[in-house]
Lab assay of single mutants.
Amino acid sequence: MSIQHFRVALIPFFAAFCLPVFAHPETLVKVKDAEDQLGARVGYIELDLNSGKILESFRPEERFPMMSTFKVLLCGAVLSRVDAGQEQLGRRIHYSQNDLVKYSPVTEKHLTDGMTVRELCSAAITMSDNTAANLLLTTIGGPKELTAFLHNMGDHVTRLDRWEPELNEAIPNDERDTTMPAAMATTLRKLLTGELLTLASRQQLIDWMEADKVAGPLLRSALPAGWFIADKSGASERGSRGIIAALGPDGKPSRIVVIYTTGSQATMDERNRQIAEIGASLIKHW
């Protein structure tokens, strides 16, 4: 058993032996400061991975655009179909130039040979490839079927209504393609630790998130040596930015963190910096 498999397999085991986890309101002070700095709403939640207890939250039940963070949920739905014998990670999917949409750094290189379902999930999560996400959405029946999958998990909040890139429109008060921090954190925890997916599929999902290559300026920039993080970021119109993550010290995840912001006029660099500073406060007061 690899170190990674050891880590995921023991998450339920550690729940019975973990020390009490204490919240630190200092992080919420930073979240509120980020709102002031960005001139935008910020949603935040910090969840204990083992118990599911909410440690801190700010606007946990307000809607925010999901942006590309939905791609983790999408690959969770794909893995659920794999577990049920309805899909194979090794199945190759062929597509054409007409299928390519904006920001497809991986799929645009494989027009001649296509990509496997496994490769598409990797591209969608680690590189946020939009065509990969659309191709995967097609395999499960489209955005409405992803919403149905989430409903069956008990998440009646999170919804996907459109495809890439239209889902990134982020119109104020538009509930399409949105979630709430509390709903996203709970759903992510179920995917990573619950019985919905097999152990192998849970491991695969967290491996893809751990290999994320496009979230460096966010929480990863504040991470001390030896800490673990598996994450997925997102960005969209109207100053929207977000990240969902499982992270913790000693090389294993122990908390879920979800951060969303929307409605800012700030630059992408400034949005990144504010999220990184929230992460730094979280780690300092861990």
Rank of each mutant, 00 (worst) to 15 (best):
P60A: 15
A280D: 14
E145Q: 14
T139A: 10
R91H: 09
I125S: 00
I244Q: 01
G263W: 07
K232T: 02
D174K: 03
P181D: 00
D231Y: 02
P20Q: 13
R41G: 03
S80A: 14
G226S: 08
S2N: 14
Q97H: 14
K284I: 09
G279R: 03
Q88E: 14
I140R: 02
S96I: 09
L191E: 00
I11R: 06
E210Q: 15
D129H: 00
P224D: 04
P249T: 05
G39A: 12
V214R: 07
L160H: 04
K284H: 12
S2A: 11
T138V: 12
S240C: 13
A40T: 08
E164S: 03
L218H: 02
N130I: 00
L137Y: 07
G85S: 09
R118E: 14
W227V: 02
Q4L: 12
D113V: 10
L10F: 13
S57H: 08
S240D: 11
L137M: 09
D269L: 10
S221F: 07
R255L: 03
Y44H: 01
Q203E: 11
E164A: 05
L74H: 00
N168C: 04
E169Y: 08
N168E: 02
L167G: 00
T112A: 13
V21I: 10
V257M: 05
F149D: 04
W163M: 08
P165L: 04
R118K: 11
D269K: 11
P224M: 01
L28M: 11
G52S: 05
K190D: 11
C18R: 00
G234R: 02
A222S: 14
D269H: 15
R255P: 00
W163G: 05
R202W: 02
S281C: 11
E61L: 13
M127S: 09
L197G: 00
L38H: 06
M180H: 13
R159S: 04
E108G: 12
L47R: 01
R241T: 02
N173W: 11
Q88N: 13
R202A: 10
K30N: 05
V117D: 07
H24S: 12
V21A: 15
S80L: 12
E237Y: 07
D113E: 13
D129M: 00
L10H: 08
V82E: 04
A225L: 12
T126L: 07
N50Y: 14
R92P: 07
E62G: 04
G216E: 10
T139E: 11
S96H: 14
S281A: 13
D99T: 11
H151R: 15
S201T: 06
R59L: 01
G154T: 00
L73K: 02
A222I: 13
I125M: 12
R59C: 02
S68L: 00
E87T: 05
A222Y: 09
L218W: 02
I283R: 04
G43Q: 02
R176Q: 09
S68H: 00
A170C: 12
K284A: 14
I229R: 00
P165G: 03
V157L: 08
L146C: 04
S80W: 11
Y44R: 01
R118I: 08
L218A: 02
M67H: 07
A182L: 15
N134P: 06
I244F: 01
N272H: 04
A225Q: 13
L137H: 00
P249N: 06
G52T: 04
D207Y: 12
I3M: 13
T158R: 01
P20F: 03
E108K: 10
R7V: 10
L89E: 05
N168S: 04
R81K: 15
V82D: 03
S201M: 08
Q204V: 11
L188F: 11
R238D: 15
